[in-house]
């Protein structure tokens, strides 16, 4: 079979729009996930058993249920039992964010635990209250140490967003499927999509490394 990449050309505007959707879902999910992960990780390191258990249960649910099932649940299932209604973008973003929060909070917990007791003691000895201590002393250091795993989470999030094509949102993958059904050609569109994701992931990795270098400037000798 002869390959003909020119069949992609008419679809380029669709790819452009779809790319924006993919990037939007990824970034919104990551930011929301990051915000959610902070209280979640604080619960996990808390001395209060019920908080700890609740946070651990939350994580186990998002780890234990396949992502596609979670997406379907949020989009099709939840609106039938709760008075809420999501469009595909909202449902997808929410699921991805809650998922990321589960994973990020695990590494954040590790990051917080890895911080020397002396940092807490110095903060306490200076009379600093718990919320300020966590916000200004402990979490900035913890986030710095979880940055590499944060970049990994960002990357897997980006790749996982392909699942929203299954609830009808037109992301890059969906455009590929549209091309396939119109032209009966599969290699060219999916090859182009693979390249898209590969380039995006490489960009993210580079961005992550730059960021890491930047925040590590306080460690430089």
């Amino acid at each position: 079979m002869k390959l003909d990449f020119s069949i992609i050309t008419p679809w380029l505007p669709n790819f452009g729009a779809a790319l924006i959707v993919t990037v939007q879902v990824t970034i919104c999910s990551l930011l929301l996930g990051l915000v959610l992960s902070i209280p979640l990780s604080l619960c996990k390191i808390s001395n209060l058993r019920p908080l700890q258990a609740a946070a651990d249960f939350y994580t186990s649910v998002f780890r234990g249920v396949p992502l596609l099932v979670q997406v379907f649940m949020m989009y099709f299932g939840i609106p039938l039992v709760l008075p809420v209604k999501f469009n595909a973008f909202q449902a997808g973003t929410l699921v991805f964010a809650m998922n990321s929060a589960a994973y990020i909070s695990e590494s954040m917990k590790g990051g917080i635990r890895a911080i020397d007791r002396g940092q807490y003691e110095a903060a306490m000895a200076l009379g600093i209250h718990y919320p300020s201590m966590m916000k200004d002393i402990i979490l900035p250091q913890a986030i710095k140490s979880v940055l590499p795993s944060l970049v990994n989470e960002f990357i897997s999030l980006l790749k996982n967003t392909t699942l929203i094509s299954s609830i009808g949102l037109v992301d890059i993958l969906r455009v590929g499927q549209m091309i396939q059904s119109k032209t009966y050609r599969a290699f060219e569109p999916f090859f182009v999509i693979a390249i898209f994701y590969y380039v995006l992931v490489m960009l993210l990795s580079t961005l992550g490394k730059t960021l890491e270098r930047k925040v590590n400037k306080s460690d430089r000798h």
Binding site: D116, G118, Q119, E121, A122, M124, A125, L126, G127, H129, I137, P140, Q141, K144, S218, D219
Partner: peptide, 22 residues
């Protein structure tokens, strides 16, 4: 409260415990 006490009592540690990100 411990916070009030610690305002008036300073402590210097064996391992300094400076905040490395500041």
């Amino acid at each position: 409260s411990a916070y009030e006490v610690r305002k008036k009592i300073g402590m210097v540690f064996q391992h300094f415990n400076l905040f490395p990100h500041m």
